[in-house]
């Protein structure tokens, strides 16, 4: 676990840390990863067909459209414009 890895993880996670914070995070993450490394000891292979959570096709939802939700309620936790969510401009 080095700063480069932390930077990469921050990019994937969309998180910022100051340099001081980053140092602390790196130490904590190193200790955490050390704990996670215990799984490497065990010799097991994963077979997804052996999971017990699958369902049959007949249990899958039937296709029927229902009325949508009031737009103003969906947008009630943001400040919309023209009934849209507002983001910084995406194209230069």
């Amino acid at each position: 676990m080095d700063i480069k890895t932390i930077d990469h993880l921050c990019e994937l996670s969309k998180l910022n840390f100051t340099d001081d914070e980053k140092q602390k995070v790196m130490e904590e993450m190193s200790a955490i990863i050390e704990l996670m490394d215990t799984v490497k000891e065990i010799d097991l292979t994963y077979d997804d067909t052996k999971d017990n959570n699958s369902i049959t096709y007949s249990e899958v939802r039937k296709d029927a459209a229902k009325p949508s939700y009031p737009t103003d309620r969906l947008l009630s936790n943001t400040e919309p414009q023209d009934n849209c969510y507002v983001v910084p401009k995406m194209v230069e």
């Binding site: 459209a65 229902k66 949508s68 737009t71 947008l75 919309p80 849209c84």
Partner: peptide, 17 residues
């Protein structure tokens, strides 16, 4: 989800949680 899959519509009118 059960929103209509039709093309178009007023912005965010064919939406649900």
């Amino acid at each position: 989800c059960t929103c209509s899959a039709k093309f178009g519509g007023e912005p965010n009118s064919r939406c649900c949680p």
